[in-house]
């Protein structure tokens, strides 16, 4: 569904992505693991169009996304749940969901979808008039997911949804991820929590220092090796 080929993204002279190639299959959960600073968030921001790649291509079912504005990429059916959630703190939960549907003009459909989000995330329903900045971390994460879903994405990108959340909440978030996938959403997930990620992922990639260093299915590599490489990187693990 998503084909990333030889992608290079740089901050000034420093290349954060040094030629990344990977594929996300439709209907599956694909996970990207790697240590801090590997370039995972840069990759997500580049796919979403917030960062412009220097080289390479990003194809969604054959259509080129590289070079498009973030707004155009949303309209192509890609939505990102960003790292740190980035909800709109001074807007109510309801308004955050409305903003998520910014590009849609079918008012009835948007309202129906908001009701669906309320049904799936009952805490959001209870707090629909509350400012998003006053929600707990877990509730903000759910809001960020619901907001992304409001654009009716074909591909949902998630950047570290478990970051800074208590273990029980993390388990809940991963349940939701599995549930969304069962309902037909393709998911591309960046995670530090390798243990949880490997339980839901159909396939995964390891990224180290701006390059993809492993591609496979969860059973293919012993979990402790994955964890070692995901947290520490190969170089330090070897030395």
């Amino acid at each position: 569904m998503l084909d990333v080929t030889d992608l290079v993204t740089a901050y000034g002279k420093i290349e954060a992505l040094k030629g990344v190639s990977l594929q996300v299959e439709g209907g599956k959960i694909t996970c990207l693991l790697g240590p801090n600073g590997a370039g995972k968030t840069t990759l997500m921001m580049t796919i979403a169009g917030v960062l412009q790649p220097r080289r390479g291509s990003i194809r969604l079912k054959g259509a080129e996304l590289a070079g498009l504005s973030p707004a155009r990429i949303v309209s192509q059916g890609v939505a990102l749940v960003p790292e740190n959630r980035l909800v709109f703190p001074h807007m109510s939960v309801y308004e955050n969901l409305l903003a998520g549907a910014y590009q849609r003009h079918d008012k009835a459909g948007v309202n129906a979808d908001i009701e669906r989000m309320y049904a799936r995330f009952p805490q959001l329903h209870e707090r629909s008039e509350q400012m998003a900045g006053t929600l707990s971390g877990g509730e903000q994460q759910m809001l960020a997911v619901a907001r992304a879903l409001m654009s009716q994405p074909r591909l949902l990108l998630m950047d570290e949804p478990s970051l800074g959340l208590a273990p029980l909440i993390v388990a809940e978030i991963f349940n939701i991820i599995a549930e969304l996938n069962r309902d037909g959403t393709t998911i591309f997930l960046v995670e530090q929590n390798a243990h949880m990620a490997l339980q839901v992922a159909h396939q995964f990639f390891l990224m180290e220092q701006g390059r993809i260093t492993f591609k496979g299915t969860p059973g293919q590599l012993a979990e402790d090796e994955v964890i070692q490489r995901a947290y520490l990187g190969t170089r330090r693990a070897a030395g």
Partner: peptide, 23 residues
């Protein structure tokens, strides 16, 4: 209004405003 929602979203978080598809 929709335009007001977009402006308040940009005030709240410009990166997230990009991500929900606001120009």
């Amino acid at each position: 209004t929709r335009f007001g929602l977009a402006l308040r979203a940009i005030i709240g978080n410009p990166v997230a405003a990009h991500l929900v598809g606001i120009n």
